[in-house]
Structures are given as structure tokens and as C-alpha cells.
Computed example of a mutant assay.
Amino acid sequence: MLQSLKEAKKVVGTKQAKRAIINDEVEVLFVAKDAESRVVNGLVDLCKEKSIEIVYVDSMKELGKACGIDVSAASAAILK
């Protein structure tokens, strides 16, 4: 599942993911387990409201690498 992030149309980061969720553009949300809860709780709640699948990733570093960026990422979303 994580491999699909490399090729898929996506947004990386909490602000961009939140905007995409609000605009009903998200298919799957990826959240790093080690991200601060205050950062990602709003996203998780929005996804539950809108019945969007949430996939948890072990670390922010792993999520960033899967997205093809050189920094850690708390969240990323695959767009419809």
C-alpha cells in the first residue's frame, strides 16, 4: 500500500491533506504513528466523518521516504 504513494497523485503534509479532505478529493489518508497527536487528530476525525480509509505507517521518516521526499511527513493523502 505504501508503495502506491510514489506513483499516485498525492498531497503531502497535514495542511494540504486537510484541504483535500474538506474538498472531497481524498481516497486514502496515510498517517505516521509517531506524529504528534495534536497535529493529526483533526485529519483522522475528518476522515472518519467522511468514511475515508486511514492507513497507519510506523514512522514519519518512512512516510516521507515513501512519498519521495527527503524530510519526514506526519501525513499524506492519495487523491481520487
Rank of each mutant, 00 (worst) to 15 (best):
K18E: 14
C67S: 07
L46C: 04
E25R: 01
V44D: 03
L79A: 09
G13V: 01
K6L: 15
Q3C: 12
E7C: 11
G42P: 07
S4V: 04
L79R: 06
I21V: 13
V26M: 05
I54W: 00
V57R: 07
K18C: 03
K10G: 02
K9A: 06
V57K: 06
V40I: 10
I21L: 11
D58C: 13
S75F: 07
K6P: 00
I22M: 08
L79V: 05
K61A: 09
K50N: 07
Y56P: 01
V55G: 03
A35H: 03
A32F: 00
N41Y: 00
M60T: 13
K65M: 13
I22R: 13
L46N: 08
K10E: 11
G64L: 01
A76N: 06
S75E: 06
E25C: 01
I52A: 03
E36W: 02
E62T: 08
E53K: 12
K48P: 09
K50T: 01
S75R: 00
M1Y: 14
V71P: 00
I69W: 10
K61G: 01
Q16N: 10
G42V: 10
R19E: 15
E62P: 00
V12C: 02
G64Y: 04
K80G: 08
K65F: 09
K50I: 03
E25Q: 04
D24I: 05
D34E: 14
A66K: 06
F30E: 11
A20V: 05
R38S: 15
K9T: 08
L79D: 09
K33D: 01
S51I: 11
S51T: 15
I54K: 05
I52M: 03
M1F: 12
A76S: 13
V28F: 12
R38W: 10
M1R: 07
G68F: 05
C67Q: 03
Q16S: 13
G68E: 12
E7G: 13
L29P: 08
L43P: 06
S4K: 08
C67R: 02
I52P: 11
G64Q: 09
D70G: 13
A66Y: 00
V26Q: 09
I78G: 09
A32M: 02
D24G: 08
V11M: 02
V57C: 05
E27D: 15
I78A: 02
A74G: 08
G68T: 11
V28E: 08
L79F: 04
F30A: 11
T14G: 05
I54Y: 00
S4G: 04
S37Y: 03
A35N: 03
S4P: 00
E53F: 01
E27R: 15
V44R: 14
L46M: 10
K6T: 14
L5R: 02
L5N: 04
L63W: 03
T14E: 13
V55N: 11
A32W: 00
C67H: 02
K65I: 09
S59N: 13
S75P: 10
V44I: 12
V57L: 09
G13P: 06
L63M: 03
K18S: 12
S72R: 14
E62D: 05
A32E: 06
T14K: 08
K18G: 05
